[in-house]
Amino acid sequence: MKLWGIADQVVRLAILLAIVGGVTVALRARFVPPSFGETGHYRAEAVTIAAELPVRYAGSEICAECHDDQEELRRRSYHRGLSCEVCHGAAAAHAEDFEAQQPLVPRARGEACLACHEYLPSRPTGFPQIIERLHNPLEPCVGCHDPHDPTPPEVPSSCAACHAQIERTKAVSHHLALTCETCHEAAPEHRIEPRSHLPNKPTAREACGRCHAEGADSGAEIPRVDLDTHGPRYLCWQCHYPHHPEA
């Protein structure tokens, strides 16, 4: 078998290769999924499938349609940024048919509130935190706080209720005996509307100098510096952290 002067071996191999190639092309045409390549190198159908998965969290807008009273309360409270399902759990089934599912109603102490409000040093400072075993032990949180409007029933008696991190830091420092008021003046309103009435902070080196200056009227064990020569270009708290002063 010799065609157009091409060697017999090559002709036979070419036929075999053509058969294999033809079968491959035919199989490919038969099996490539129909929607493949419509919008890119993937099955366009897969996008639809992904978009049609069931929803479990309904989103808080729909809750307000029935629970407008709680919603009204919550929207003016410190919890205004929370959606209902943070505490009540996924409730899309309930939103669909209110009898189909009973959303969670956490009432017991520590069931939901402590997930956010138990003191952890890694939490951002200023976020309201309590130390659970010291904060009205055994009382359920909802006994005193309405979760839809969690403003403390009494004005917090200590700064530590919100500033737990500072309190804890100070407690292990040389400044443990100082009260917050030694350095900060806080208007009583700060306890009710903290962000509208910010406490003040010391502004001059003399604030620390009251105890730490050479001639200060304070205990002999307190370290002294000469305010004129000790780092005169800086304010004290630019190098030292007053809540945990470095030795």
Partner: peptide
């Protein structure tokens, strides 16, 4: 594959291939 040519040219072609 039925390619049974044993002529010297064919064998030489094999070697070249």
């Amino acid at each position: 594959l039925g390619s049974r040519d044993l002529s010297p040219e064919a064998v030489a072609f094999d070697q070249k291939a």
